[in-house]
Write a protein that binds this DNA or RNA. Structure first.
Lengths: 347, 347
DNA sequence: TTGAAAGCGCTACCAC
DNA sequence: GTGGTAGCGCTTTCAA
């Protein structure tokens, strides 16, 4: 805790600019804030002085007295910045933000409710102008007394509970139903669904989609196995290994998430069943097309999600208040590559 | 530009806390800043008042007068936040930062010198406490008059030019030499190296390593082809296709980067040469072990890089000044999986 | 059209 | 130990 004086000594202030331009500081303020009632000649002198002194207004000092304070920063909470899905969303949001000279604070949620709240508090302490949140806490009610009522909030990837705001997410229900229908259409009747913890909204939605498809095809529910709480690759690999060792083992696997898909592929490979058991994943994987068989997936559109979420946030920001909340559902795309088109083996 | 008043009205200030605790505001200030010379009883009263009023000091207002100003935020500039390599570094840095209640601004470089400078300026406007930078500009000299002299800077992934600072990067030279030696050891004598733009420091280092290995094995330089300026998958795919169509085509390919490796694999597949042409990549890929053949790589350790970089940054931050610059080289790991162990075919 | 004065919420300095 | 006063760099208010 020794002294670290942040650009202290050679600081040029508005006063010096005013002196140089031979005007009052208020006039300088008017010029930089594009306020009316400044004579063109005066404004020119001020601008010249700013140039010459290379002055930059101190954003923090301005915001102190200002009623309409903007830090030109937003808080972004993602599942995990290292996950390709999250990272792609992040990039899309950055691309929109950078054009408006807005910087983004990114944090990882790790599916922990405490981290969600801690991250929001950390963003607010830094006076962000808006929030884009992936949530995991049971309820987002806490936002009501934490967040100023005009601050824009967009929920991405998951729907909040007990709090109304803009939301942007994939068609999880429809996508999962589509994936399930796909393998059912190839004749499978013994299916397994592998999903993450049910605390996660998308996991629940994908489970709903799976069940809906089974019902459409009149498949009795005891012909399907649902394994939940799979939050990493290894857990998924173990689950698949165990499933395939059982009597009446499933002939098709629906995976509810990219890490789970990778684990499932590993298990099938190790067991030598990859040409034998159908597999369809949710969310796409790099190199999935080059495996043998290729991995069929229902791909999300994370870039589009990020774009749309950022657009909503900035629309509210421009309006100066939260706009009427909208819920935007981004389509998913079924990509058949082989693994999902394997027909059931006789057992 | 309508009004968006950020938590304005119901703002509780230090004055109210002082009144409530029946002390002067300076005493409240002492308590929150853990300054000495406050009687325990007084401190307790103050803390109670803070609790009751749910007061939080305004960080921006504090920093205005403070000499040792800290925003508890850092700027992180990465190649591309959506690239798995960058994203893993990001996550590792976040993990260190979050424990210290430091938030991180992340930006993408996209290999554009202008973005490098723009990002640094954007970070500085927001008064970050430190910088972790991936650089692309020809020289980092500009930092000298942009960045306050005590502000810690750590360069990650690439060495800066004309500016001395902490640096953390992979053993690019050694790793590339190792990869090249590896295929040379299997008998290859006609090699190709595929790299990104030579403006990128790592591309140059990897080229150096490639050439060094060739020299060690006494391979004449005209037996090797170096293709540069490959910055995306498709460009790499086209380059490989073209290379393999030439007389005296290479029998082994050394890829200088993960996107290039993916492009190369695609090309080899499409040509049906994947069991025929050796391939070794720099930087690891998800699912690389499940391809047939598996893709041999020299893997970097992005997580370790991020950890080490963050450790350096916070060490300087704790010291209150830049520490004597160190250059940390993170080892790489050769992972043989099949593609790099293919022997040369007779031609 | 302009600027002087007050004040944003807090810390630095110094007197008590 | 404690608190008043000045002032950080800017915006706001209001008088000129």
């Amino acid at each position: 805790m020794t002294s670290l004086s942040n650009q202290r000594l050679p600081r040029v202030t508005i006063r010096e600019v005013a002196q140089r331009a031979e005007v009052g500081i208020k006039t300088v303020s008017r010029v930089v804030n594009n306020e009316p009632n400044v004579a063109p000649a005066t404004a020119a002198r001020v601008r010249a002085a700013i140039e010459e002194l290379r002055w930059e207004p101190d954003a923090h000092a301005s915001n102190l007295r200002r009623t309409t304070t903007r830090t030109r920063s937003v808080g972004l909470l993602l599942g995990n910045v290292a996950n390709p899905f999250s990272a792609t969303i992040h990039r899309a949001i950055e691309d929109t933000a950078v054009h408006r000279d807005v910087a983004v604070f990114a944090s990882s949620l790790d599916e922990e409710p405490e981290r969600e709240i801690a991250a929001v508090e950390a963003f607010l302490r830094r006076k962000v102008d808006g929030l884009i949140l992936t949530c995991i806490a049971e309820s987002q009610e806490y936002l009501a007394d934490l967040v100023p009522p005009e601050m824009p909030i967009v929920f991405i990837d998951r729907e909040p509970a007990s709090f109304t705001g803009d939301t942007v997410h994939s068609d999880n229900f429809g996508g999962s139903r589509l994936a399930t229908r796909h393998v059912l259409g190839f004749g499978h009747r013994r299916l397994a669904l592998l999903i993450d913890r049910r605390e996660i909204w998308t996991a629940r939605e994908r489970e709903r989609g799976f069940i809906a498809a089974l019902e459409e095809f009149g498949v009795p529910s005891d012909a399907a196995t649902i394994v939940a709480d799979l939050s990493d690759r290894d857990a998924a690999e173990r689950a698949v290994t165990r499933l395939l060792g059982m009597p009446d083992a499933p002939t098709a696997i629906v995976s509810g998430q990219n890490l789970i898909t990778v684990g499932a592929v590993h298990a099938l490979r190790r067991l030598g069943r990859h040409h034998d058991i159908a597999l369809i994943g949710f969310d796409d994987l790099e190199l999935a097309d080059l495996l043998e068989p290729g991995i069929s997936v229902v791909a999300q559109r994370p870039q589009e999600m990020g774009q749309v979420a950022a657009a909503r946030l900035f629309a509210s920001l421009d309006a100066g208040q939260r706009l009427a909340p909208t819920s935007i559902v981004v389509p998913v795309d079924l990509i058949p590559r082989g693994s999902g088109e394997i027909r059931p083996h006789r057992s």
